[in-house]
Design a binder for these strands. Structure first.
Lengths: 222, 222
DNA sequence: ATTTTTGTCGAACGTTCGTTCTAATAATAG
DNA sequence: CTATTATTAGAACGAACGTTCGACAAAAAT
């Protein structure tokens, strides 16, 4: 498996890379990724076998390996695509907003909207956080760190604008916890949609950090 | 494997259930549970093999099955013990406090203190949430629902006492998210201890729900 | 001292795992 | 219509899986 395998014939990947920019290969691979996401969502990465994945995709076990070289790479592709997309969309949305508080609300809304619209993929991203090894793992970790950085900066801006004082790290990670935990309990039938959820979590979080950040020393309140 | 196996000799479990109330068997089993928790923490339930567990326990593969009848039962024992203990301690602590806000702070402190003192077990409880099937699964789910109920009641009391209005469900599950997510990021060397963490998360959450629950209709704030 | 019980182990069971070989088909091009 | 390339599948690989068996040592009871 490791070292230099003597056979380079496989791994053609992109056809001629010419015009259509989305080859049949790419489209089929994307389909497989979707089916695989379903299976990983239901059984977890370790619990899902390649045979489960092939059955769900309607493709033979061997046929799968024409599209990707290992189960681990498959998980990597899912995570990379999901995470890249959510960061992309966030950057787009942040362009329109300047108010520090609103920018945080945009962050929360973007996260929850994408999370609930792609719940399965986001569970696979959140839950199978530390299963990728070596190169794959570090690449996903880098995107994660970047996403974290963005949120920290948004919060630091709010602190500066409002003269607040609190630990950005704990606040941000608490916020991530609130949002990411959703995959364990949200049911579209009974729970509110992303907009409503973002409103409420935004309220709790923003009023929380604003109020608690104001009092340098503890106040007895009333 | 299924059906009525002809051999009833195994499954003696508790020795004579008499005086010492903690037999050698129980003590050895508890040790194994601790080692197993470490392994599940590192590799996940599906990713950890019985051979991994036997190696960590310093006991032969076959020897393990003298103490429990399956890998799933082992996970069940870990989760049950962990969850039961945290609820027990909570009940004890709540006896001393009557103020609704303080009771919620007690809840948070109890959760975080136990979480950080037993981080591995708590990850195994949080992360391997839906892997137990049938009887095992429903029993753990029942404790979880009970724990959730307690928290909802604490929050409803606060709402009544302060005349607040917000969704208890979203608030509680947000709080659980904040707290449980810790297992993904908390490092004892760099992050604060449970008391400090409970203080800060308690601030964010309580000020958050209090402030956001006061305004029935949205205010433009400033 | 010997029987019974309690604890432990090496070896193996049958099954499933991720992956690969080989060869046959479908699509595309000349 | 052939040559070529992209795509699929059957069968098998060795390794690892959870679990069980039967024999055996240590401890406790008689």
């Amino acid at each position: 498996m490791a070292s230099a395998s003597p056979a380079p014939p496989r791994v053609s990947r992109r056809r001629r890379a010419a015009l259509p920019s989305e080859t049949r290969f790419d489209r089929r691979l994307a389909k497989i990724l979707t089916y695989a996401t379903d299976v990983f969502y239901e059984k977890g990465y370790e619990g899902a076998s390649m045979r489960d994945l092939s059955r769900a995709s309607g493709m033979s076990l061997a046929g799968m390996y024409y599209y990707f070289e290992s189960k681990e790479k498959l998980l990597y592709l899912i995570q990379k695509h999901t995470f890249t997309t959510i960061v992309e969309r966030l950057r787009e949305r942040l362009k329109d907003v300047t108010d520090p508080e609103q920018r945080i609300r945009v962050f929360i809304l973007n996260h929850l909207e994408y999370f609930l619209a792609n719940q399965k993929a986001m569970k696979v991203l959140s839950h199978e956080d530390d299963v990728l090894k070596n190169g794959f793992g570090t690449e996903i970790a880098a995107i994660k760190r970047e996403y974290y950085r963005i949120c920290i900066e948004l919060l630091d801006n709010l602190k500066r604008a409002k003269g607040l004082e609190f630990s950005s790290r704990i606040a941000v990670l608490s916020l991530f916890g609130m949002m990411n935990w959703i995959y364990t309990w949200h049911h579209p039938r009974v729970d509110a949609d992303a907009g409503e959820m973002a409103e409420q979590m935004g309220n709790i979080f923003l009023q929380g950090v604003c109020a608690s950040g104001k009092a340098q020393k503890k106040r007895s309140a009333n």
